[in-house]
Computed example of a mutant assay.
Amino acid sequence: MNGMRKAQSEDVRFVYERMCDLEERVFDWQVFEPLYLEQLKDETMDSLIFEVDGKRAGYAAVRYGTYLHHCVRTAELIELNVDETRRDQGIGQAFFEEIVRLAKEKGCAELALATNQKRKRAHRFYEKNGMKATHFTYTKNI
C-alpha cells in the first residue's frame, strides 16, 4: 500500500522516532508514550501515517477547528516528518497533498502551520506548495 492511514497505538515507536528527528532531541519515552496514546483519542485531531510498500515512511498530526481570527474552519498541521531514509523520493509531497485533500474533505477552507525558523528546507517545501509566511510564532517555557 502507498498512502495515508490513521495512526494506531502500535505506531508509537515510529512516531517517537519521527518526533525526536523533527525536534533534534531525545524525548523521555515514559512521557511521550502516554501523550501519544492520549492524542490518538483527540477527536479534533488526526494522527496520520504515510506508508510506501506497506512500510511506515512518515507521520503527521493535524488539528481541525474554527478560529475567530481566521473566521473559517482551519486545518492546522502540527507535525510532519518523513523518515530520513525516505526523503527526496516525493513522499513528503504525496503526504502533504493527502493532508490538503483530507482537510478539504473535513470542510476546512485553509491549512496553517508553524515551523521552526532553522528548518529552511521545510520553509522551501511549504512555499513551493503555495503556503505563505504570514505570522510569527512565539514560545515561552513556563
Rank of each mutant, 00 (worst) to 15 (best):
D28P: 02
M4F: 05
D28M: 11
R13L: 10
E10R: 02
V31D: 12
T44H: 08
G58W: 06
F27Q: 06
C71W: 10
Y64R: 03
L68F: 12
R73V: 07
V26H: 10
N81G: 06
D11K: 02
R13I: 05
R56A: 15
F14D: 05
L68D: 14
R25D: 12
S9L: 06
V15T: 05
Q39E: 09
Q30V: 11
V72P: 06
E76P: 05
A61K: 08
S9K: 12
A75P: 00
D11H: 10
E43G: 03
A7K: 02
E76K: 11
R56I: 01
R5W: 11
C20Q: 07
T66Y: 15
Q30C: 11
T74C: 09
V26K: 14
T66R: 15
D11R: 05
L80H: 04
R5I: 06
D83Y: 01
E38S: 07
F27T: 04
T44F: 05
V52H: 04
D42Q: 03
L77D: 02
I49S: 00
G54F: 09
A60P: 03
E84A: 14
V72Y: 06
F32N: 06
M19L: 14
W29C: 14
L68I: 13
V12G: 01
N81R: 09
F27K: 05
F50Q: 03
I78S: 08
I78W: 11
A61L: 07
S47V: 01
L80D: 00
V15L: 00
D28L: 12
E24T: 11
Y64E: 06
I49T: 02
M4V: 07
D21S: 15
L77Y: 01
E33H: 04
V82I: 07
R73S: 10
Y16W: 09
M19G: 04
V82M: 01
L22P: 05
R63E: 14
D46R: 11
V82Y: 00
V26A: 10
D21G: 11
R13Y: 09
A61D: 08
Q39P: 02
A7N: 07
A57H: 03
A57V: 03
A75T: 02
V52W: 02
K6E: 10
V31Y: 15
L77V: 07
D11T: 06
F32W: 07
M45F: 06
T74R: 13
F14S: 05
Y59G: 00
Y64I: 09
E17L: 13
I78R: 09
V62Q: 03
E23K: 07
V12Q: 02
E51A: 15
E51I: 08
G65E: 14
D28W: 12
